[in-house]
């Protein structure tokens, strides 16, 4: 009797399931994001201190959450590869890294553009900002390490080890605003200090962008499975050519 993860470990079955799910996840993302943007630009009030610049929160905060969610997916997938040798673990880790890196970059840029009018500076070596910057470099390191190795299996193992070593950055980012005296405000999350008129659009935007992340991750995994199939076919073709050549030479 196969477990759920074993049943999902079959790339062909994954392709079928993800092909069926992708349109729904994509449509859900589009609907949530569209509704969130409507609320953000036509319903949500300005902040009593920040005024309209609070509108940047609706893309900055979800980006930061997805930056960390992305790395969590890479780390969990890496654990799945090293411990369980799950056939799709490496595919998942490889597909999640560029998506996580993109959202980390978005969080850094939108945060910097939010900081200039509010703090008077684009950047400060604050604990939260610096740890998110390190997270971005970690993503780039994972992507660079993987692309520098031809051997797929070796690349998977090495990036998995690096990813698991780098997991320490996640609690540092999360608790940086509590451990150190930072310019960056405490965690937005869903504390009672955020008025419902702002919390609701933020939640809807977060759901929309999370669905977008999932859709991109599924599509990225599909691409990676196709890439590996093409690579396998081409290697088989080369080997067959060599066999024919040596048969003729004898």
């Amino acid at each position: 009797m196969q477990t759920l993860t074993q049943r999902l470990a079959n790339p062909t079955r994954f392709m079928e399931i993800s092909r069926a799910a992708l349109p729904w996840v994509t449509a859900g993302a589009a609907l949530f994001i569209a509704y969130a943007m409507y609320l953000v630009f036509f319903v949500a009030p300005p902040d009593y201190q920040q005024g309209e610049t609070v509108k940047i929160m609706y893309i900055h905060v979800p980006s930061a959450w997805l930056a960390m969610m992305g790395y969590s997916i890479v780390a969990i997938s890496s654990f799945g590869l090293l411990v369980f040798r799950h056939p799709l673990a490496d595919v998942s880790a490889k597909a999640a890294a560029p998506i996580g890196a993109a959202f980390t970059l978005a969080a850094l840029i939108t945060g910097s553009l939010w900081g200039k009018p509010m703090w008077g500076t684009y950047w400060v070596w604050d604990a939260r900002l610096t740890s998110v910057l390190i997270l971005f470099f970690l993503y780039l390191g994972l992507i660079a390490l993987r692309s520098s190795l031809d051997d797929e299996a070796l690349a998977g193992k090495l990036t998995a080890v690096l990813a698991l070593v780098g997991v320490a950055i996640l609690p540092i980012i999360k608790f940086s605003v509590d451990w150190w005296n930072t310019l960056h405000q405490p965690s937005t999350a869903f504390t009672s200090t955020v008025d419902p008129s702002m919390r609701t659009p933020l939640l809807i935007a977060a759901i929309g962008f999370t669905l977008l992340f999932i859709a991109l991750h599924l599509k990225g995994m599909q691409n990676e499975i196709l890439r590996r199939r093409v690579k396998t076919l081409r290697l088989a073709e080369v080997e067959r050519g060599e066999r024919l050549f040596s048969a003729r030479a004898e």
Binding site: P46, G51, E52, T53, K55, I56, I59, H60, S63, P98, I99, A102, F103, L105, A106, I109, T110, L113, W114, K116, P117, L212, L216, K219, G220, Q222, N223, L226
Partner: peptide
Amino acid sequence: LGPHAAFIWASYAAFVAIVGALIGWTFFDG
């Protein structure tokens, strides 16, 4: 959007550019 409208639009433009490029690249790669 008040006195800091430029920063708001710049943020959304940067976000759309990054996420748009990510979506485009993912589907082009597929």
